[in-house]
Amino acid sequence: MVDHVGLLSAFGLIDAGYRQAVQVMEEGGLDGSTSDPDFLVATGSEELRADIPVLRHDGKLNPNGRHMAQQPIELILLKQWASYLALPVWLIDDSGNLLYYNEPAEALLGVRFEEAGEINADQLAEHFHTTRLDGKPYPNAELPIVVALVGRVPSHDTVRVRGLDGVWRILAITAFPVEGQGGRHLGAVAMFWETHDS
């Protein structure tokens, strides 16, 4: 979790107060970590994986500068699910990068996924502006996506968002963390519903 905080705070999504809140959550055991005494072989450690080369199909780098590798199956299936939905959906990895957005979400972003591909966390923070419904600034740390990603709990709110096309919209946002097999925190899913009621 600390890594997520560091990454997100690096591009201004998390302030000092939120960092403190995260620390409280971690100390309270809310970080989803597991310590199953009956678990005979915990074999997914980075130490062991380090012996196996990361396979690259085209040498491409992902938004974090890491070499692209196959996504976890949970994210692959979520992408397929999202691709069939008629409401906008974002799929975000554990570092805050927007891995995938479906066709309805392209309207919010003002760019097609087939053209732009993944959008890294820095670009997201730079191009999206969010306020409360009354126009007051929305604390980044309270954004549903950030809460789901960092706090690892579901979150929902209705906000004003200015997208890449410069248009302000009122959006209901529901975000939930993606907790995979074996206690892996893989990212978050955000769903949007445009509304004209304020």
Binding site: V41, T43, G44, L48, P72
Partner: peptide, 16 residues
């Protein structure tokens, strides 16, 4: 019994 929590890597003798 060894419960595997994927993604996982382990050695069985000389096999990875």
């Amino acid at each position: 019994l060894h419960e595997i929590r994927p993604p996982a890597s382990f050695a069985l003798g000389s096999l990875t």
